[in-house]
Design a binder for these strands. Structure first.
Lengths: 187, 187
DNA sequence: CCGGCTTTTCAGATGTTATTGAAATGACTA
DNA sequence: TAGTCATTTCAATAACATCTGAAAAGCCGG
């Protein structure tokens, strides 16, 4: 349609954006390709189908399919369709804060929550139980006490983070206003 | 010294803490071992030398050395020494918020800053320059305009994040108070 | 400046994760 | 139902990250 063949600058800017985003994603434990697919959809703003994406990023069909599905799971890409075309098209969430909230939500769910669960279990191993146990030296009791203090410090911290993230993640542009507030507050 | 051979519960709690932390670290793009070494030092609270750590975590000398050095670089572990012992001992930062600040600082430096730099460069590719270019259709101009809008949205967002993280990272227990404030504010 | 002890380095082995491509599955039409 | 086109799956493979262990480099007291 619009873009002619020698439309260099825009194309290059898009490609470099895709690379930069892919790099960042990789550092975050998101597969490079998945991040690149998202970047491409975001920066072009155009609905694209699997073949468009394969061609543009030079990746296999399987890879494109997997990445798109994962992006759908994360809720940062939506399906759409074109009349008279059987292919599925995809578009990226355009609001950056919404995007960010989706990412935080997903990462908390996958990485922090399981650790929190583990820590609670671990806490049980050395709670009241240990005092019931047979003859234990004063030193050992002290060691357990300090262990529990450290464990609790970590637990408290992660729970605070959890709550904080829920504020940011909560629906509506709450996160933005909060960030602005915080930045304003502390001068 | 204190811990006798059948002191099971504490030891198991420590081991499980180490695993849980290692898992979390892995998800964050920190090598599992590096996270485990830190977890061990944190949860025991004891200064340990390289051999202690090798034995306890069953890792090679090289791996232990590398991980410890990385933790020192991150500023979350300190060297210490024992009189009459030539070995180096290591201890973990015990304040969880300080630990967290170190991590955020490091990750921003390594992952966000480079991307921001790239985005600024990319922005230049399609700034004023593009209007100078020869005959360009109205459609193309429009495309470039929208591209710039999206790019700027991302830039703004990352810059806000950067500033936010600097608040949290700033010396003294500022971060803690901020978090408390935010949690309090929105009920 | 030698000998013993400690830490660091790094090439190769090992383990993990991402990607491909072709076959299976699904979805729709006639 | 068979035929066409699109999508998903998954075993094989490639790419990447991590770990080992032995050799090299540092450090120190005598």
């Amino acid at each position: 349609m619009s873009t002619t063949h020698h439309q260099g600058a825009l194309r290059e800017a898009q490609d470099r954006f895709v690379s930069a985003w892919g790099q960042m994603g990789a550092a975050w434990g998101i597969s490079r390709t998945m991040a690149e697919v998202h970047a491409l959809l975001y920066i072009t703003g155009q609905p694209m189908n699997t073949d468009d994406i394969m061609d543009r990023l030079q990746i296999s069909r399987g890879n494109a399919s997997m990445s798109l599905r994962a992006l759908l799971d994360w809720g940062v890409v939506q399906r759409s369709h074109k009349r008279g075309d059987r292919k599925e098209y995809f578009t990226a969430e355009q609001d950056v804060w919404t995007l960010f909230r989706a990412i935080v939500r997903e990462r908390m769910k996958r990485e922090v929550d399981p650790v929190l669960a583990s820590l609670f279990e671990i806490r049980d191993l050395t709670s009241v139980e240990s005092s019931r146990k047979s003859a234990i030296s004063a030193d050992d009791k002290q060691a357990v006490l300090e262990h529990n203090r450290r464990l609790d410090a970590m637990l408290d911290f992660l729970q605070t983070m959890e709550k904080l993230s829920q504020r940011f993640v909560s629906p509506s542009g709450r996160g933005l206003r909060l960030a602005a507030t915080v930045l304003g507050k502390v001068s």
